[in-house]
Design a protein around this nucleic acid. Structure first.
Lengths: 223, 223, 223, 223
DNA sequence: GATGAATGAGGATTCATTCAT
DNA sequence: AATGAATGAATCCTCATTCAT
């Protein structure tokens, strides 16, 4: 009853209209859940945003909860996959770090809801989705720790500080995307604009450089 | 579950019972709003958590919204006041930085809901309370920027990177408290325990030291 | 804004403040009940309009219902008494009719709420107060019928039309006061102004004259 | 209990059930609003009276207020249309007057709630619906005035008495229907019975005759 | 697949009323 | 006599969900 998200790259021309509708529902739900959280989002909002009546949603998702999970799944999976790809490719070389950072920023910029959805879940203590989160987040966190520990310059930090360092970098990245709308409302500047994103990417690279050691110069890497 | 802020030791007999009840309502609401957000919190939950029937809440707050605002106000004001105090006292000396960091960590540790409430608002884009947020947050952000800029070691950063740096440090701090419950659920470790807080305080100080230059050694400052 | 009723002739200087408060409550309640009906009026409205808190009303009236009855009683009784006085005095002479009409108009003009309150009750089918209404209204109706029947010119009407005639005159009078606010809202003219009232009095006299026969000229009667 | 207006005899199979339900809701609401007024009527009452649960009402009307307006609209419009039809047809001949009176009585007898609903609104001063009322009532009033003025026998009245005369006749008509339930409660006689209505029609015709001049004998007109 | 209709559960809020102070 | 606090009952309304069409 749950249509697969079909992360398939090439849009199968045979894809039924139903699949499309499910996608549009997911799109709308993603935006709304990210902005208002689970409780703050009503299925009516989602339906309206898609141009449907509420009951129609049930032709695609059996419940609000399952829709939410589908949104989370769809938004998290490709990012994690892309990241693990990059992670596995490169070692701990500066270029690899640089590439990882750029890739991460790019992915998050592509799906700005991701950061917000994760934050919503984080705030809810993962009550809703501890399982999914533990499945996804824990390994990522572990991988990140390994990367950091493998870095010679990390010697500056005590072993028990490593998790804090990872957490810190995680929050710097996620926080940037999370705060973007508020930041714009208050200062007028759009953190999601291309130049702003480039600036943050550069900034974060330098941050990592300072904290962990050398990171490659931008020129060394090609996206 | 909620340490009362005012913490007035001996309950002034003059203090009317109503005032007490209002405080208890605020305490309960603070915890619930922080955990579940505005939409996810029902007045029935709040009332039950205080041991009242729902309509009784209306003897103290005229609406859910006003209760929410009162919670935000109560939780944010003392922290900001305490911070601005510290900020005004010290210059940009390492000791001052160290004191500011410790004070901040202490205050947030005292009111762990604060970080979560702010995050909730941040995610909502401040729709609800842009006004209050702009009143509180913008000045803090500005002050922080000034502090950073005044620091000679900040020369490492380009001027347009300063706001990003401030944002980053803000997220490192707030994120730590925000993620604590989830972190505990996933890893078992309690980030809010005294040792963990001390470790994070020390870590953050070193972080700032690395990013901005020297910060005083712990020994130099007495809380 | 609320004219004190105090139909009592000499204001007893010893009247306790409590009595006064009760009067003020009745004043406020009268206006509100007349405008909004029983269900549409809340005790909070009444209390606010008096400058009290709701529970204070219970020091003067044991319930909303009893307050309503007290309002009705207070507003109806003096009018009926005054009328029956006039009725008993005069026979069915033109002067007596004229006097009765003028007296009625004067009394209703004094207490514009009366007509509206009675209409509210009429609409409610007297469910609330059939008893009080039957106690008051039926005799009045009967008396009016007798008056009409006693009038020689009433011969124009069939016996079974007499009640309809009485009803009609009743509605012409009550309706005038009832519609005054709406009439003003729509046309701008104030039916409760002195000239308008004089005009209606004259008009109604002529109406009765046409329907029943002669009525004295205004000059013949002294108020 | 409420005669359906459209009175379409055979339920068109094409008519959707929803339309029917909406009609039944309007029927029930009409009766209740007329008897208890807006504030005195609860949606639960309406729903129960239709055999639904309260939330179902919202599938047909978005709010209590809109339901009320729909009731008013539905009950007022056809009457006014029918009346204006008659008015436009005939001039000011006695037969025309007679026809107008009979038609009016017939229409109001068909929808006894109309008079009561209008009275409810009148008492409320039109606060709720001044707009709708001004749209409907003012033209009717104007038309009535024209009719009266066009009548040669109206010469008996001063020009400034004409509005009062119109008001008076309006109140005689509306008042009759308004007081019917109370009248029955007090005297046992049902003013809404066919004979009673015929009697009132005849009476009112004579009244108009006396006040304005000749009106045709019943025999002259065929309904 | 889409939707109008229906509904149990609940959610914020109001109201009349009580009671202790 | 006045009122702050509390509350059972209700009120309007929303929401997620079901079902027949």
């Amino acid at each position: 009853m749950q249509p697969t998200v079909d992360a398939g790259s090439q849009p199968r021309s045979g894809a039924r209209k139903g699949q499309r509708t499910a996608q549009r529902i997911l799109d709308a739900a993603e935006a709304l859940f990210a902005e208002r959280g689970y409780a703050g989002t009503t299925l009516r909002d989602v339906a309206e945003s898609v141009g449907l009546r509420t009951p129609s949603l049930y032709n695609h998702f059996p419940s609000k909860e399952s829709l939410y999970e589908a949104v989370l799944e769809r938004v998290i999976r490709p990012v994690l996959e892309a990241l693990s790809e990059v992670v596995e490719q490169g070692g701990s070389s500066p270029e690899a770090s640089r590439r990882l950072i750029e890739r991460t920023m790019y992915l998050l910029a592509q799906r700005p809801e991701l950061a917000r959805l994760i934050q919503q879940e984080t705030l809810a203590g993962g009550h809703h989705l501890t399982e999914m989160l533990s499945v996804w987040i824990t390994p990522v966190f572990e991988r990140a720790r390994e990367l950091v520990e493998a870095n010679p310059a990390a010697a500056r930090w005590e072993p028990e500080q490593i998790p804090l360092l990872v957490l810190a970098m995680y929050h710097v990245i996620v926080g940037y995307f999370t705060i973007a709308p508020l930041y714009q409302a208050l200062s007028g500047e759009d953190l999601m604009s291309a130049p702003a994103l480039a600036r943050q990417t550069e900034f974060f690279s330098e941050l990592v450089e300072v904290l962990l050691g050398e990171v490659a110069r931008p020129a060394d890497v090609k996206e």
